[in-house]
Amino acid sequence: MSKSKPAFSAIFDRDVVAYATLSLISIFCLLPFVWLILASFDKNASLFLRWPSPWTLNNYIGIFVREGGARWFFNSFVVVGTATIIVLLLAGLGGYALSRMKVWWKRPFLYTIILVRVVPPPALIVPLYKILLTGNEAVGSFVRSLVSPESVRPAMLVVGLIDGYFGLTLVFAAMQLPLALWIMKTYFDTIPHDYEEAALVDGANLFQRIRLVIAPLALPGLAAAGLFAFISAWGDFLMPLILLSSSELQMLPLGLFRAFLRVQQIDYGFLSALAILYMLPAVIAFGFARRYFVQTFSGGVKA
């Protein structure tokens, strides 16, 4: 980036060092994947590195043919996708509010929500389960009053807080919200107030201002916050493990966790293929989000 022109040898030397360092880091990052990729094409894969013999695609095909792979993908996308949308809506509005308002509890609130995330998930399982179960009973009686008895169970699979799409979606959204709020708040801090004030002069009310002025400006920040939330929720396995039971609701991490923990005999080929497919959406999301990250975070934190 520098505009000066040092001697040729200096560039050469420094670039060699840069290439060497970056190559080492890249090898470190890539090395662990070698086994995963080879094993996923190996009919007789084992836990350890070996050259596939014979090569096969059956591991991948089996995920959809023998197991409910398509269902797992669908459920993961529904739950994580909905959670991400909720995070975007709430963090967009909330982050804007946090950036613009001047109340005494703003900083304590921001620190509280980020620090409380330090509590490891196992400590939250039982309290979370209890509150969701209480909510679930309320939702249950509401649903029972609306639909015929035989539709109650299918309905609860969708709106139930325990063993239902809705509950897990809310949990994911709540868990991802604190970081998303931070990202959006710091992002809005970098957007000058001028635009809103111009809109205000034009007589726009708060909601018009948000829809017409703020939302378009917030897009890069939302992209970064949303993709962080998506990737993080996509990778979580403990909450689905505890909160879901019905086979209709099984998600990718559970399919994987189960395949891995079928105690006695693990099919490593199947497992690796599933792991790769499971990784893929997160990797794609990351590639997609990459260009927004720097834009969002640059100057994000005000000294």
Partner: peptide, 20 residues
Amino acid sequence: IILLPNAVPEVVAGYIWISM
């Protein structure tokens, strides 16, 4: 390449490293 490991879900990361 450097971004790749960050996208790996925790269960997958766990057992990639078991293999390692």
